[in-house]
Design a protein around this nucleic acid. Structure first.
Lengths: 336, 336
DNA sequence: ACGTAGCACTCTTGTAAGCTGAGTGCTAAG
DNA sequence: CTTAGCACTCAGCTTACAAGAGTGCTACGT
């Protein structure tokens, strides 16, 4: 049996109706609402064929059909009609990256706000791996008499911490030490520094305040911080009708709370550009009812940042893809 | 009718059993589990009295009793036996503030981590109002050829943003401008700067890069940023049995997502030290089933920071208060 | 050979009725 | 003042039943 044009139309109609209604689609309803030019009985036959092809599922004997993972996949790859964004959305996304700000946290925050407000998605993001970041500068900015802000600048992160100086410390010598340290470490990746920094510092420096300094550097250089998973739009997500029942919403909340799982979900995708993973295509079983559209940003051939739009499998793929595509273009351009 | 000692014991037993079990407490169970020396019938009479006094509620005719808001209040004020913290907790809290870090975001993050892991609470925090912060320094830290990190230091906040410099900008003149600006504005509160900064900058400075600079200053000085509400431990909160039903959990998620509501909840308390607000004592109706223990930190007679432990009314008040009290002591000492 | 009408069958959902268990309130006796 | 006993109440569970939606199959028409 082969997927002729009519079967495609039926599948497409089912996916789109189901996406809109969240209710299984029956043959009669479909015949009534769509002008397919055939009766419900014919549609029933087509549906039976689509089910045999593994493109539709039946929740139970008399409940109408629901797209299977493969059905969604076929829809996304071949049946879906791409949608455009509204003019103002298009421009809004462009405008987001026109500023001169070149800092990851800021770009991520902006992008997430945009994506979260643009649809019923939960948005995930991870920034570039901190261990790949290249140290540029460590500097101390005096605040007042007794306090000083340490600032660590890498190629796409800035970190700071304000500390209290002990009375017996000469600010000038601290500044000089930092300048030396800066010189010595500049151009190294965080990954590399991680090894040598402590030795270096231990060898050349001493005194109480340097405990704080080392602590600060250590904190800044700890990978966990830089790869922090950003999450927003959980209420978009949880307000989907699939989470009407207590068990479901509970499971969903648990999934959300497990940052590591969401991180895997997002990182499961590889490569640059926009990708879709549907249901069981996701690596972990707890995400088998979800789909995710990922945006991978590369830079110099390495993975740089990654965003994800998460929703039940019954997501609006056309819209998610349009958004993702546009954000990818704009962000990729801004960064490269 | 007056609250004699036995009534107090009964109320206390009901509160504690209910806190532990989340199920309404019946007279027979109470007689069996607590050694009150009287029969269930007597307890029934006492319960009826307590209900008449407005200290107990009945969910329905045959469901056992549940403490009313006033019942909880009386329990907290007069019946509850204060508990101590475990030795290691006590020391852990102390240790948290021994470091020399004097930056609000850091202290808040540390404190929240502690509180969230210490019990089944959701933790809220707001830092000091940014508009009261006193500007210390604005400085530019060079990153590489074309980029620069702007750093703004106030007495308890540091903000930064990395921006790309236009080719035609002389980094030295930028640095000079910032130094001038710093000199002019140092010692002013953000609130005051907010008015004058734009005029000042507009009058003395010009050129494309200064748009970014002004934008950065504006962002830093926008009060919303500085008063950002920190939230953690939502899973502690949502895993409480009161949220077993879908509607409840849904409402709770919505409440959490509404940052402004949580902000009001937290800010509803006034004054320094540890306070408890129970159920309807909270200003907003959507929090009438919650209780919050707040920790208010003052500094120089002004409200500085505020933390909140949020849980269903059926919270473990003794533990929450012990934690809050200890954190308050330690933090107050560290800051003042 | 394909499309359609009709019909029997299946299965979920919603509703009503009955039962059970936990708890209360009241009364009378100790 | 306390307690035992008993009638009464009510949420929640179970069962039964009807309604509604949908399917699969068969027979018929083009």
């Amino acid at each position: 049996m082969v997927l002729d044009e009519r079967k495609g139309m039926v599948l497409r109609a089912i996916v789109e109706d189901y996406v809109a209604s969240a209710e299984p689609i029956g043959s009669r309803t479909l015949a009534r609402t769509h002008n397919l030019g055939v009766s419900s009985a014919t549609i029933r036959n087509e549906m039976a064929d689509l089910e045999a092809l593994g493109l539709l599922d039946k929740p139970h004997t008399s409940a109408g059909r629901v797209p299977s993972d493969r059905g969604y996949r076929l829809y996304v790859d071949r049946l879906m009609e791409p949608v455009g964004l509204a003019e103002h959305e298009f421009l809004q996304i462009q405008g987001l990256y026109l500023s001169r700000v070149r800092e990851m946290e800021y770009l991520i925050a902006q992008t997430m706000r945009l994506l979260t407000n643009a649809g019923d998605f939960m948005t995930l993001a991870v920034g570039p791996e901190l261990r790949r970041a290249v140290l540029m500068r460590i500097e101390a900015v005096a605040a007042d008499e007794g306090r000083m802000a340490l600032v660590l600048v890498t190629d796409y992160y800035v970190q700071h911490r304000m500390i209290e100086l002990p009375d017996d410390l000469d600010p000038e010598s601290l500044r000089r030490t930092l300048r030396d340290l800066s010189e010595r470490l500049r151009g190294l990746t965080v990954e590399k520094i991680n090894r040598s920094i402590l030795e270096l510092v231990a060898r050349e420096l001493s005194g109480r305040i340097y405990d704080e300094l080392i602590q600060f550097l250590h904190d800044c250089l700890a990978p966990s911080e830089g790869e922090r998973l950003h999450i927003s739009g959980t209420s978009n997500f949880l307000s989907q009708p699939e989470f009407r029942e207590a068990d479901r919403i509970r499971a969903a909340v648990q999934l959300i709370e497990q940052e590591s799982l969401l991180g895997d979900l997002l990182r499961g995708a590889s490569g640059a550009g926009v990708q879709v993973r549907i249901g069981q295509e996701n690596p972990m079983p707890s995400a088998r009812d979800l789909s995710i559209v990922t945006i991978g940003i590369e830079r110099g051939g390495e993975m740089f940042a990654r965003f994800g739009l998460v929703a039940p499998k019954r997501m609006d793929y056309a819209r998610a893809l349009a958004l993702a595509q546009r954000v990818w273009q704009a962000l990729d351009e801004a960064i490269n």
